[in-house]
């Protein structure tokens, strides 16, 4: 009896840790849209979109990623790093006003979204070094 009870608790624990299909499709169980945007974005004081994109590509290569695709018009770069794990990342660069660029990144680790703000902070600080520009948080 006690064993059944414990098994039930265990099963609930496992299920609680996971999400439904809808939650998976929308990544809805992982904080608000605004929170995500905030830690996944930085602003750079430059009007040169191409320069920021080229520096982003260069940073991704420095970090061991192989570029999958890039698009200047859209301002997007996707890259994948393989090895023990597989990390896929998309970075977009969008003009904000006439003299600023908003860089936004999202990444996944194997089959899980990366949601630790520290990881993004590390990425942006690597990008800063390649751009010779300081990154600002939005607002």
């Amino acid at each position: 009896m006690r064993l059944i009870f414990i098994s039930c608790i265990m099963a609930t624990a496992i299920l609680a840790g996971c999400a439904s299909t809808n939650q998976r499709v929308l990544d809805a169980d992982t904080g608000t849209q605004l929170q995500k945007r905030s830690y996944q974005s930085r602003v750079f004081e430059t009007s040169d979109k191409e320069k920021v994109l080229r520096a982003t590509i260069s940073t991704l290569q420095d970090l061991g990623f192989v570029v999958d695709r890039a698009d200047l018009t859209l301002g997007a770069v996707s890259a994948t790093k393989v090895g023990v794990h597989r990390i896929t990342m998309t970075v977009t660069v969008r003009p904000q006003g006439s003299d600023r660029m908003l860089v936004r990144a999202n990444a996944q680790f194997n089959i899980t979204p990366i949601e630790d703000p520290k990881q993004y902070q590390d990425f942006f600080s690597s990008l800063e070094k390649s751009l010779f520009l300081a990154a600002h948080t939005e607002g």
Binding site: L3, I6, I9, M10, A13, I14, A16, G17, C18, A19, D62, L63, H85, I87, F109, N110, T112, I114, D116, K118, Q119, Y120, D122, F123, S125, S126, K129
Partner: peptide, 25 residues
């Protein structure tokens, strides 16, 4: 043992996070 497994599963959930310094040069 069952209790330990239970706690382990709770902590692990479904997610695994990347090692530190994944994005550091």
């Amino acid at each position: 043992m069952v209790a330990a497994t239970c706690v382990g599963l709770l902590l692990a959930g479904c997610a695994v996070q990347p090692p530190p310094n994944t994005f550091a040069l």
